[in-house]
Simulated scan of single mutants.
Amino acid sequence: MLLDDTDRHALRRQGRFLFAAFKQPHRVLSTCRINGGFREDLTHIANHQSCEAVAHIARHASVFRLGPDAYHDFACAEADLPPATTALMTTAANMQCAVVARAAHAELAVHVAATAGVLGNATRAGDPAGWHERPDGSERVRQVAAKPPPVEAGSGTIVTLVFINRPCTPACLVKAVAVITEGKSTALLDLRLPSLQSSGLATGTGTDQLAIAAPLARAGEWERHWASSHNTLGELLGRATHDAVTRCLLLQNGLCPELRRTICGALSRHGCDEATLRACAATELDAGLAQLFADNLPALLHDPQSAAAAYGLAESVDLARAGVLHLEVAREAILNQAALLAATVAVKPERFAEFREVLRGRRDAEPGVLAALAVVRGFARKWN
Rank of each mutant, 00 (worst) to 15 (best):
Q252S: 13
T262W: 03
F355N: 03
H242K: 10
A346K: 08
R356E: 14
P304V: 11
A299D: 14
G254N: 12
L237R: 04
A240K: 00
L335C: 07
C256R: 10
N253S: 15
D303G: 08
L249D: 02
V345S: 09
G238P: 00
E274N: 09
A330Q: 05
L292R: 03
R351A: 14
S268P: 01
A330W: 04
A322F: 09
A307V: 02
L289A: 06
A275P: 08
T246E: 01
A227T: 05
V347F: 15
L289F: 01
V345K: 10
L325N: 08
G254L: 13
G234Y: 02
L250V: 02
R261M: 07
L237A: 04
A244Q: 02
L233C: 07
Q305T: 08
W222N: 14
D364C: 10
W222G: 13
Y311D: 13
G238D: 06
F293P: 01
T246Q: 09
S316C: 15
A309W: 03
V329S: 06
R218W: 05
A227F: 03
E315R: 15
A281L: 02
V358N: 04
L313A: 07
H302Y: 01
Q252C: 14
S306K: 04
C248S: 09
P349W: 12
D303Y: 05
V317W: 06
E274P: 02
A342Q: 01
A219T: 12
Q291S: 06
A307I: 05
P257C: 08
A308Q: 13
L327W: 11
D273T: 04
A299Q: 13
E221K: 10
P304Q: 13
C248F: 10
D286N: 04
A342E: 01
E284Q: 05
R247C: 10
T276N: 03
L251D: 08
A279M: 03
S268A: 14
L250A: 13
R269C: 05
D364M: 11
H225Y: 05
H302S: 11
G361C: 09
A343T: 01
R362E: 15
L236I: 05
N231W: 09
E284Y: 01
R356Y: 07
D295K: 01
E235P: 02
L300T: 06
L249R: 08
G288F: 00
